[in-house]
C-alpha cells in the first residue's frame, strides 16, 4: 500500500510539473493581457509533433526537445504579432472565437502534415528502463521529467522574481496600464512572454509524448486542466501556477488510484464501482468550482 501511494504520489508530482510547463505561459497571457487563449493546447500538440518528427529524423530525443521548443517559440512569435496582438483590446467573445478557430486550423494542419495516425515517440534509450529509488522501482524516464520540471520551475522563479524583465512581467500582471505608463514596453514584453509560453508548452508536449499518445486532439484535454490550474493558483501568478499544478497533478493522480479503494472499504461494492471512477475524475473540477465560489481570485492573486 505504501509502495502504491508513494509511486502514485511521484506520478502525480510528475504530471503536476508538466501541467506547470503548460500553465506558466497560459497564466501570464491570461493575467497580463486579460486574454482567453484556447489555442494554448495547440502549442502543446505542435510541440509534441515537432519533437516526435525531429526525434525520428535525427534519432536523438534531445534534438527533438530542442527543435520542438525553438519551433513552437517561432510559431508563437508569428501568432502573437500577426493575430493575437489585435485581440487584446477586444472582448472575451472575440478571443474565444479566434483562438477556437486556431484549434480547428492547428488540428487539421497536423493531419495534413503527419496524417491522422498517432506518432510514436520513444523515450531516450538510456532512460527506457526502471531505476531503484529508496528501495522501490520507478521508471527512469519519469524521474527525468520530474527533474526537468523542477529545473524549469526554479529557472522561472529566478527569472520572474530576481530579474528586471521578471519585474516588468509582475508589474504588467498587477496593473498593465500603470506598467505601461511607467515606461515598460508591454507590447514587446508580451511577444517575448508568448514565445516563452509556447516553448514551455512545446516542452511539455514532447516530454509527455512517450507517456501519452502524440495525436490530434491531445491539446484539448490538457488545455482544460491547465485552466483549472491557473484558476486555482490565481490568474497571472507563476507561483500560483506552480502550486496549482502540483495540487491538481497529485489530487487527480492519487484520486484515481486511491478513491475506488477507499470507497470500496466504506460503501457497498456496487456503489463504489460506479461512484469511484466518476468521483475521481471530477474531483479537480470540484476543486476549481469551489475555489471560484469561495475565493475567485485564487491562491495567489496577481492583480493589484
Amino acid at each position: 500500500m505504501t509502495q502504491l501511494i508513494l509511486e502514485q504520489a511521484l506520478n502525480g508530482l510528475q504530471f503536476g510539473l508538466m501541467l506547470f510547463l503548460l500553465a506558466a505561459g497560459l497564466t501570464l497571457v491570461f493575467g497580463i493581457m486579460d486574454m482567453v487563449n484556447l489555442s494554448h493546447g495547440s502549442l502543446y500538440m505542435g510541440g509534441a509533433y515537432f519533437g516526435a518528427a525531429a526525434a525520428q529524423a535525427s534519432g536523438s530525443f534531445l534534438v527533438g526537445v530542442v527543435v520542438a521548443m525553438l519551433g513552437m517559440a517561432a510559431v508563437g512569435v508569428i501568432l502573437e504579432v500577426l493575430l493575437l496582438r489585435r485581440l487584446y483590446l477586444r472582448d472575451h467573445l472575440a478571443q474565444v472565437l479566434a483562438t477556437f478557430a486556431l484549434i480547428l486550423i492547428a488540428n487539421d494542419a497536423v493531419r495534413m502534415i503527419w496524417g491522422p495516425q498517432p506518432l510514436l515517440l520513444n523515450p531516450p534509450a538510456a532512460l527506457a528502463g526502471p531505476v531503484e529509488l529508496f528501495g522501490f522501482i520507478y521508471p527512469a524516464y519519469r524521474l527525468l521529467i520530474i527533474g526537468v520540471g523542477l529545473a524549469v520551475a526554479v529557472f522561472l522563479y529566478l527569472l520572474i522574481s530576481h530579474t528586471r524583465a521578471g519585474m516588468w512581467v509582475r508589474a504588467g500582471a498587477a496593473n498593465r496600464e500603470m506598467a505601461e505608463t511607467l515606461g515598460v514596453n508591454v507590447r514587446q514584453l508580451f511577444t517575448i512572454i508568448f514565445a516563452l509560453g509556447a516553448a514551455l508548452a512545446a516542452a511539455a508536449g514532447v516530454l509527455l509524448g512517450p507517456l501519452l499518445a502524440v495525436q490530434v486532439g491531445m491539446g484539448e484535454n490538457i488545455l482544460i486542466l491547465a485552466f483549472v490550474v491557473i484558476v486555482i493558483g490565481g490568474i497571472g501568478s507563476i507561483r500560483g501556477a506552480l502550486l496549482g499544478s502540483l495540487l491538481v497533478g497529485i489530487v487527480d493522480t492519487l484520486g484515481r488510484a486511491l478513491l475506488p479503494t477507499l470507497l470500496r472499504a466504506t460503501t457497498a461494492p456496487e456503489v463504489a464501482a460506479h461512484l469511484g471512477p466518476a468521483l475521481a475524475s471530477i474531483m479537480i473540477y470540484l476543486l476549481m468550482a469551489g475555489m471560484l465560489f469561495w475565493r475567485p481570485q485564487g491562491l495567489f492573486p496577481a492583480r493589484a
Partner: peptide, 22 residues
C-alpha cells in the same frame, strides 16, 4: 467575467466525466 466563463466550464466538464463513467 472570466470567472463565470471558467466556472461554467468546470461544471460542464464535471457532467461530462460523470456521464462517461456511468
Amino acid at each position: 467575467g472570466v470567472y463565470f466563463i471558467m466556472i461554467t466550464l468546470a461544471f460542464a466538464q464535471m457532467i461530462y466525466y460523470s456521464v462517461i463513467s456511468l
